[in-house]
Simulated assay, not measured.
Amino acid sequence: MNTAATTHTHCLRCGRTLHTAKSQAAGYGPTCARHIRRAAVPLADYKPHQIASARELIEDGAIIPLRSVVFIAVSTDGTETYKTAPNACTCKAGLKGTRCYHQLAARMLLAA
């Protein structure tokens, strides 16, 4: 198990250079961190493991923009990709009409 702290030189949300040690440790600049916190407020519809998975998806860079509100997200095991947006996803859960962590990650990234 690796216990070393991970530091980032660029924001995981917008790609800008991170200057402070606090931002580098968090992986987000102050503005992007604020946007993510605001998006995370209405989380009542999501389970704790979905919230953790959405944050991990963003931190791993496993969700990338395709269009203005559409993203490509990688599956948990890395074998599949899904088109996702804040209100829809092509994963199994999304196709059933259930909210998935891919949608939550898209909401977090688009929060303004």
Rank of each mutant, 00 (worst) to 15 (best):
G29Q: 06
T17E: 14
H19E: 10
A5K: 13
H19P: 01
R34K: 15
C11E: 00
T31E: 13
V41Q: 06
T7Q: 14
H8N: 08
C14N: 02
R13V: 07
A21V: 12
H10K: 14
R37S: 12
L43M: 04
A5Q: 13
A40Q: 06
R34G: 14
Q24H: 09
G15M: 04
H35L: 06
S23L: 00
A21K: 12
T7I: 13
T6N: 07
L12F: 01
P30T: 15
A4K: 15
R37M: 09
Q24V: 05
R16H: 07
C32Q: 02
T6D: 03
R16G: 11
A25R: 15
L43S: 10
K22C: 01
P30F: 07
R38F: 09
G27P: 03
H35E: 03
R38W: 09
H35N: 08
L43K: 04
G27N: 00
T3A: 15
T7M: 11
A25L: 15
A40K: 02
R37C: 07
C14V: 01
L18F: 06
C32V: 04
H35K: 09
P30H: 12
L18D: 04
G27F: 00
A21R: 14
R37W: 03
C11H: 02
R13A: 14
Y28M: 12
Y28V: 07
G29P: 05
C11L: 02
A40H: 01
T20C: 03
S23G: 06
A33H: 12
L12P: 05
H8D: 04
A4F: 14
P42R: 01
H19R: 13
P42V: 04
P30Q: 09
A21L: 11
C14D: 01
P42D: 03
A4Y: 13
A33C: 08
T31L: 10
R13W: 03
T3M: 14
R13L: 09
C14R: 03
A26S: 12
H8E: 05
T20P: 03
P30G: 10
R38I: 13
K22R: 14
R13D: 06
A25T: 11
A40P: 00
T7D: 06
H8V: 00
R16F: 04
G27S: 02
R37N: 13
T17N: 07
R38K: 13
G15P: 06
A4T: 15
A21S: 12
R37A: 15
P30S: 13
T20I: 08
A4Q: 15
G29V: 07
A5G: 08
T17I: 12
